[in-house]
């Protein structure tokens, strides 16, 4: 246990009363947001476009600093001294894989994080091979990211953070730009990962497929926190917060036994 960690905390992520507004913006994007995520849980953060989902995701990695309130990961409260360690613990996958894959080969992009952590070549190579294998993309290593398909880019982008051995994965709109098969494959892949996952999305069926628990973000705070299936069955409540199920999609009728865990 490192200095700054609080003992006995089973919650991997603790966000306490966070407020944040972009400079010059008339009102805060996040305002009094509090949330805890137990270790190993997969949580969907739902909300329409512009509800502050991405801003929230950037806070979990310390890319944005709250004006008020605290963010803690694995008992380590985010601050100038803990920033590097938190970034190692939290793998943030951006909405557009083209923003994440900026080097020429996939292998280089996957090696970028470990290289920043100062790992030596042997452990770096092993991390790259493991991460690519984990997302089923070993064959992509020498390829140029520019010509990968949407699904391949998404998997490669995921590998760029898996190579850093994070404890938490934060994925911002992971299904944007994916075809149905790509979505299914991603859902199956995330299902196999042991990391705590925060999946920021407005893709409600995907949230249900991957995350037993979901919260709804609106007006800068959490307005609903429930088993995903229960949330999806409450169309009236979803509608109040700008969310809608896709046309023709019906959520399962009953709460499955494992939901809510």
């Amino acid at each position: 246990m490192k200095a700054g960690e609080t003992a006995g905390s089973a919650d991997e992520i603790v966000v306490d009363d966070v407020r944040f507004g972009y400079p010059g913006a008339p009102r805060a994007v996040l305002d009094g947001l509090s949330l805890t995520v137990p270790a190993g849980e997969r949580l969907a953060v739902l909300g329409p476009n512009g509800s502050g989902k991405t801003t929230f995701a950037l806070h979990l990695n310390g890319l944005l600093t709250p004006e008020r309130g605290t963010v803690a990961v694995g008992g380590l409260t985010l601050g100038p001294d803990t920033l590097d360690e938190v970034r190692r613990r939290v793998g943030l996958v951006f909405q557009d894989p083209d923003d994440q894959l900026f080097l020429h080969t996939v292998a280089d992009d996957v090696a970028f994080g470990p290289a920043n952590l100062g790992w030596d070549r042997t452990s770096r190579d092993a991390a790259v091979a493991d991460a690519l294998a984990a997302v089923g993309a070993s064959d992509l290593a020498p390829r140029t990211s520019h010509h990968l398909s949407g699904g391949e880019k998404r998997r490669a982008a995921l590998a760029t953070v898996l190579s850093m051995a994070p404890r938490v994965l934060v994925l911002d709109e992971p299904t944007s730009g994916l075809d149905p098969r790509g979505r299914r494959e991603l859902a199956e892949l995330l299902d196999t990962r042991p990391e705590t996952q925060v999946i920021v999305t407005h893709d409600l069926p995907f949230a249900l497929a991957v995350c037993p628990r979901a919260v709804v973000l609106d007006e800068g705070r959490i307005v609903a926190d429930a088993p995903t299936v229960d949330l999806l069955r409450d169309a009236e409540r979803l509608g109040r917060h700008g969310l809608e199920l896709p046309y023709g999609y019906a959520p399962p009728a009953a709460t499955p036994g494992q939901a809510g865990g």
Binding site: L63, D84, F94, F102, G113, N116, V161
Partner: peptide
């Protein structure tokens, strides 16, 4: 955004 993605990975 690319810079943010780099910083997020310890750049």
């Amino acid at each position: 955004r690319t810079h943010a993605a780099m910083v997020a990975r310890g750049y």
